[in-house]
Deep mutational scan, measured.
Amino acid sequence: KGCNCRRSGCLKNYCECYEAQIMCSSICKCIGCKNY
C-alpha cells in the first residue's frame, strides 16, 4: 500500500513507507518526499 504524507517529507514513522524502510517510488507518493 502506498503512502501519501504531506508535511513530514515521509521521514516520520506514521508514513507507511518510512516505517517499512521503503524508499520513495511510484508506489510511495509522498509530497516532497525526502526518504531516499
Rank of each mutant, 00 (worst) to 15 (best):
32 G>V: 03
13 N>H: 00
23 M>E: 13
30 C>E: 07
18 Y>A: 11
18 Y>N: 13
17 C>E: 03
35 N>G: 14
7 R>Y: 12
6 R>F: 08
3 C>L: 01
16 E>Q: 11
24 C>G: 12
29 K>W: 08
23 M>P: 08
10 C>D: 09
31 I>M: 13
19 E>V: 07
31 I>V: 14
35 N>M: 00
13 N>V: 01
32 G>Q: 04
35 N>F: 01
19 E>K: 09
11 L>T: 10
17 C>M: 02
8 S>G: 12
19 E>W: 03
16 E>S: 02
26 S>A: 12
35 N>V: 04
11 L>P: 09
13 N>F: 01
12 K>F: 11
5 C>N: 03
2 G>S: 07
11 L>N: 06
10 C>P: 01
35 N>P: 10
36 Y>R: 15
31 I>N: 13
19 E>T: 05
3 C>S: 01
13 N>R: 07
16 E>L: 03
22 I>W: 04
19 E>P: 06
3 C>Y: 10
27 I>C: 00
13 N>P: 06
33 C>W: 03
22 I>S: 10
5 C>K: 05
31 I>D: 15
25 S>K: 07
13 N>E: 10
8 S>F: 04
5 C>L: 03
27 I>D: 13
25 S>P: 02
14 Y>K: 11
27 I>L: 09
12 K>I: 04
5 C>A: 04
20 A>P: 06
34 K>H: 10
5 C>V: 00
33 C>A: 11
17 C>A: 04
20 A>I: 01
22 I>V: 12
28 C>W: 01
36 Y>C: 10
5 C>R: 02
7 R>C: 04
17 C>S: 04
1 K>E: 08
18 Y>Q: 13
15 C>P: 06
24 C>W: 01
2 G>A: 08
35 N>R: 11
14 Y>Q: 12
33 C>G: 11
22 I>R: 12
4 N>K: 05
22 I>Q: 15
8 S>Q: 10
12 K>E: 12
6 R>S: 15
24 C>Q: 10
12 K>Y: 00
6 R>D: 14
36 Y>A: 14
4 N>F: 12
8 S>Y: 02
28 C>A: 06
8 S>H: 03
35 N>I: 13
15 C>L: 01
11 L>S: 08
35 N>Q: 13
31 I>R: 13
28 C>F: 10
34 K>P: 14
12 K>W: 01
17 C>Q: 07
6 R>H: 00
5 C>P: 06
6 R>L: 14
19 E>Q: 09
14 Y>A: 06
4 N>C: 08
33 C>V: 10
17 C>D: 14
6 R>M: 00
29 K>V: 12
12 K>S: 08
12 K>L: 05
9 G>L: 01
2 G>L: 03
32 G>A: 07
31 I>P: 12
7 R>Q: 15
23 M>D: 14
2 G>R: 03
16 E>P: 05
28 C>E: 08
31 I>L: 11
21 Q>S: 11
34 K>E: 14
14 Y>V: 10
13 N>Q: 10
11 L>D: 03
35 N>E: 13
9 G>I: 06
15 C>R: 04
7 R>V: 09
27 I>S: 12
19 E>S: 07
26 S>L: 02
3 C>R: 02
2 G>Q: 08
3 C>N: 02
9 G>C: 00
2 G>W: 01
29 K>L: 08
31 I>S: 14
14 Y>W: 11
22 I>M: 03
25 S>C: 04
21 Q>C: 07
20 A>C: 03
6 R>P: 13
35 N>D: 14
16 E>D: 02
10 C>H: 01
7 R>A: 15
29 K>Q: 14
11 L>I: 04
20 A>E: 09
27 I>M: 11
6 R>V: 13
14 Y>D: 14
1 K>W: 00
28 C>N: 05
27 I>A: 14
35 N>L: 00
9 G>D: 13
31 I>K: 09
19 E>M: 08
12 K>R: 04
12 K>C: 01
35 N>T: 08
21 Q>R: 13
33 C>K: 09
21 Q>K: 10
21 Q>A: 09
9 G>H: 11
19 E>D: 06
9 G>E: 12
11 L>R: 05
32 G>D: 03
6 R>A: 15
30 C>P: 07
24 C>R: 04
30 C>M: 00
10 C>S: 07
34 K>R: 13
9 G>P: 07
8 S>A: 08
25 S>L: 03
22 I>L: 10
23 M>N: 03
29 K>E: 15
36 Y>T: 14
15 C>V: 01
3 C>Q: 03
21 Q>E: 14
5 C>D: 00
31 I>G: 14
30 C>I: 00
30 C>V: 04
11 L>K: 11
2 G>C: 03
24 C>E: 12
26 S>G: 13
32 G>P: 10
29 K>C: 11
25 S>T: 08
19 E>R: 08
5 C>G: 01
35 N>A: 14
34 K>M: 12
17 C>Y: 01
29 K>G: 15
21 Q>N: 09
8 S>C: 02
17 C>P: 05
10 C>L: 04
24 C>S: 07
26 S>R: 07
16 E>T: 04
33 C>S: 09
14 Y>M: 14
10 C>Q: 07
23 M>R: 10
5 C>I: 00
15 C>S: 01
23 M>S: 10
12 K>Q: 10
16 E>G: 09
19 E>N: 04
5 C>Q: 05
16 E>A: 06
25 S>G: 13
34 K>T: 13
3 C>V: 01
24 C>D: 09
8 S>L: 09
28 C>S: 08
14 Y>H: 15
28 C>R: 02
12 K>A: 11
9 G>W: 00
29 K>A: 14
7 R>S: 08
12 K>T: 07
25 S>W: 03
12 K>G: 10
11 L>Q: 13
2 G>V: 07
24 C>A: 08
16 E>F: 03
28 C>D: 06
19 E>H: 08
11 L>W: 04
33 C>P: 11
18 Y>V: 06
1 K>V: 00
23 M>A: 08
16 E>K: 02
27 I>P: 13
27 I>W: 01
4 N>M: 11
1 K>P: 00
9 G>M: 06
18 Y>L: 04
11 L>A: 13
36 Y>M: 15
7 R>E: 15
32 G>E: 11
28 C>V: 03
14 Y>T: 07
12 K>H: 07
25 S>E: 05
17 C>T: 01
20 A>M: 05
4 N>Q: 11
11 L>V: 05
12 K>P: 10
31 I>F: 08
4 N>S: 09
3 C>W: 01
9 G>K: 00
26 S>V: 08
13 N>I: 04
26 S>W: 00
27 I>G: 15
30 C>T: 03
11 L>M: 12
13 N>A: 10
33 C>Q: 04
35 N>C: 04
23 M>W: 06
11 L>G: 10
13 N>G: 11
8 S>D: 10
14 Y>F: 05
13 N>S: 08
10 C>I: 00
3 C>P: 02
27 I>Q: 14
31 I>Q: 13
5 C>T: 03
14 Y>L: 11
7 R>N: 07
20 A>R: 11
36 Y>G: 14
11 L>E: 12
7 R>P: 09
10 C>A: 08
